[in-house]
Computed example of a mutant assay.
Amino acid sequence: MTDTIIEARPAAGFVQHALRGPFNAAFFRAMEPYLSRSLGPRKERVFAGLPHAVVELGSGVGANLRYLPRGATLIAIEPNRHMHARLREAALRHGVHLELRADTAERIGLPDHSADVVISSLVLCTVHDVPATLAEVRRILRPGGTFRFVEHVAAGPGTPTRAVQRIVRRPWAWTFEGCSCERDLEGDLRAAGFESVDIERYRIRSPILPFNTHIAGVAHA
């Protein structure tokens, strides 16, 4: 049986929107098979060998639960409460114990040096303050711990993809909880003070052109 613990604290800086919240919960549930096919090879590599206790930023509807061993505990940082019911259902299906916190990634609320692994996918594009989020990740990681990520990023300057990312920036951000297609997350990760950062840049073939440029990798505390 999966244990579910819901933190009742409101997520500072996050607005529970009556339209966007339910839409994103339904959208990512419907898109999970497609996203799994597109991002699965990198996730399988980056999330391989996860331990029995993992912190995840922006767990959403539970797309990454399949990479945890059965019986593991996931501390899920997910401020969008409209995601929570689907996330709990997914945890039950995968046999994962769930500690669900409605905090934001900028204020994780866990003790210093309390985690061996933090993971994220398609999350750093949405946080309000990327440096503050990465500082929180470093704060809670034990020495030698890892932050494992699969994220979409800005395309190269002057490319058609970058032009489209710029054109759709405002409606895209409004629809997807502040998501930006134009962030240099590789630069942010390398500047965050980790001991080392291993990053692979790659492109997926998707008709959703602004979403096609990605990075995946591991940052070592």
Score class of each variant (00 low, 15 high):
5 I>D: 14
12 A>F: 00
12 A>P: 11
13 G>A: 12
14 F>E: 09
14 F>H: 10
17 H>N: 14
19 L>Y: 05
23 F>R: 00
32 E>H: 03
35 L>I: 07
35 L>H: 09
38 S>N: 04
39 L>G: 10
39 L>T: 09
42 R>N: 13
42 R>S: 10
44 E>F: 00
57 L>K: 09
60 G>C: 07
62 G>H: 13
64 N>M: 06
64 N>G: 04
73 T>W: 07
81 R>W: 04
83 M>N: 15
84 H>Y: 06
86 R>S: 15
87 L>T: 09
95 G>Q: 04
96 V>Y: 06
97 H>D: 12
98 L>D: 05
100 L>H: 14
103 D>Q: 14
113 H>W: 01
114 S>I: 01
117 V>Q: 10
121 S>G: 15
127 V>R: 02
139 R>Q: 06
142 R>N: 07
146 T>A: 10
158 G>Q: 08
164 V>K: 03
165 Q>A: 10
167 I>H: 09
169 R>W: 01
173 A>E: 06
173 A>K: 09
173 A>R: 13
177 E>K: 03
177 E>G: 11
178 G>P: 10
178 G>K: 06
179 C>A: 10
180 S>I: 00
183 R>A: 14
188 D>R: 14
189 L>V: 00
199 I>E: 10
203 R>Y: 02
205 R>Q: 09
214 H>Q: 14
219 A>I: 06
220 H>L: 02
